[in-house]
């Protein structure tokens, strides 16, 4: 056995022709009666032949590497891909909903705050019975607006303002000449507000809100006899103006810009 092992170590040298003549003869002699040694000699010959072409060797390495690499790649089943896509879509839709809700939040807040003002006596406080007559949005409408961001059309009349249009209050210290209670105006035109004091000059406030109740213009302490309002950069829609003196409403009207 030991002989076999030592001769086995000679095989490489034998192939490279590095054995002495004596060693070579000895190996051949051993191989003649030792099948294991013969097998190994042939295997060595095979190996030398097979690995003689570096190109094939490298190609085989590349193929093997590719196979292992591709096999170890995480292959996601189709159903998982579909599930992942659905989850992503739902997440995106949720995010979009959140963004829309968030952007509506200001609007909703304004709407609720506005309703609160309307219900309090700050806005229509001096108009008798106004508390009972304020026609806020129905719960269904409000829910629709809050949930789906369904804003009313910019020309949709606001009921709580609408029924007050043209109302002239009991304050007789100021007489509003223009505009008319319901004004229709084009974009980029001028609307003249004019008034006369009956009992001496008194500063006036002019407030204009859109049909959602957002204040778009608020002039305080007007002491002139009039005010020219240019609607050049105004969005088309329905607005409501309110002229007040300190704590009393003089008149309320609507301006429709088209």
């Amino acid at each position: 056995m030991n002989d076999f092992l030592s001769y086995s170590h000679w095989i490489g040298k034998f192939t490279d022709k590095e054995l002495t003549a004596e060693e070579e003869n000895s190996l051949i002699f051993q191989a003649s009666y030792n099948p294991l040694l013969r097998n190994e000699l042939r295997l060595d010959n095979d190996l030398n032949e097979l690995f003689s072409d570096p190109e094939v060797f490298l190609l085989s390495e590349t193929i093997r590497k590719t196979i292992i690499h591709e096999r170890n790649k995480v292959r996601t089943p189709v159903y998982l891909k579909i599930a992942a896509s659905v989850i992503i879509l739902i997440t995106l839709a949720g995010l979009a909903g959140f963004v829309i809700n968030y952007s509506n939040h200001g609007y909703r807040h304004a709407l609720l705050a506005h309703e609160a003002i309307l219900k309090s006596k700050d806005f229509f406080g001096l108009i008798p019975g106004s508390d009972n007559r304020v026609g806020a949005l129905t719960p269904v409408q409000r829910r629709a607006i809050i949930q789906y961001g369904q804003k009313p059309d910019s020309y949709t009349p606001r009921p709580e303002f609408e029924f007050l249009v043209g109302t002239v209050t009991r304050d007789v210290s100021v007489f509003v000449i223009s505009p008319m209670p319901r004004v229709k105006s084009r974009v980029d035109s001028t609307i003249y507000f004019s008034w006369r004091w009956l009992a001496g000059p008194m500063p006036l406030n002019l407030e204009i809100t859109d049909n959602l109740g957002h204040v778009v213009l608020n002039y305080m302490q007007l002491t002139d006899l009039g005010y020219a309002l240019n609607t050049k950069h105004w969005a088309r829609g329905l607005y409501y103006y309110k002229i007040t003196t300190g704590d009393e409403i003089i008149t309320i009207g609507s301006i429709s810009i088209y």
């Binding site: 086995s8 170590h9 095989i11 490489g12 040298k13 490279d16 097998n39 295997l43 060595d44 190996l47």
Partner: peptide, 17 residues
């Protein structure tokens, strides 16, 4: 290097066998 090569080839042959 040669000695190591013989050693490694021997090892390979044994593995294959």
């Amino acid at each position: 290097v040669k000695a190591r090569k013989y050693y490694c080839k021997n090892l390979l042959r044994k593995k294959i066998l």
